[in-house]
Amino acid sequence: MEFLFESLWSAILMILHLDRDLFEALGTTLRVSLTSTGIASLIALPLGFVIARYDFPGKRGVQSLLRTALALPTVVVGLFVYAFIARNAPLGDMRLLFTPAAMVIGQVLLIVPLITALTHAALQENVKLVHEEATLLGASPVAASWKVLSESRHAVVTALMTGFGRVVSEVGVALVLGGNIRGLTRTVTTAITLETSQGHFSSAFALGIVLLALVLMINILIQTLGGRREAV
């Protein structure tokens, strides 16, 4: 038990001392996770919109595929991407393995189904109505789709934050595709794994606390940015 208190203390110390390893890991985590969430949202938001808005053959199949993909273990996603970027694989020439870019690819794959499914669920109820109304009022297809997303912005932001939370906290992709290279692909979570494997439980736990604090800060930031101008 006492290691929990010890951890809290060492978390504070690490932050106060501007511990270089910690900030490198935090930086990598933030860069990689934000990039993958950003790219995933560029794919998943339109995809979720299209699935919610239009009927097409095989729609139910796509939906159940998406829901199944939510259960994908991160390591499996990692190995799947590895199959494409390993050097004798189709994309091997790009030398992506063990780089942040590889982690981004894996994490994008990991959360595109998640954000798509959540966006779809968020839009489902109103999408046809809002899209028609905006279109009838003269909005272009892009502007009308944007209106649909922005009418459900709370749920859409929640979908994005859920995706972000999943990539920030995952280990499998980061470990298999990133390799936990210090200063390059070591994220907070792979650092936690490393510390745990070395028996340094309190510093592993301290890293967990720092990671949570960071995500909390991002959540507050988004809420103050987005929540200010809310009406109904």
């Binding site: 109505l129 109304e133 003269g138």
Partner: peptide
């Protein structure tokens, strides 16, 4: 086109009126 049950956007009355003009 006015639907029987109109859908009004989030935001206030003036913002709703301004929407078609923005494009």
């Amino acid at each position: 086109f006015l639907r029987q049950q109109p859908y009004l956007f989030r935001g206030n009355v003036a913002q709703n009126l301004a929407y078609p003009l923005k494009f």
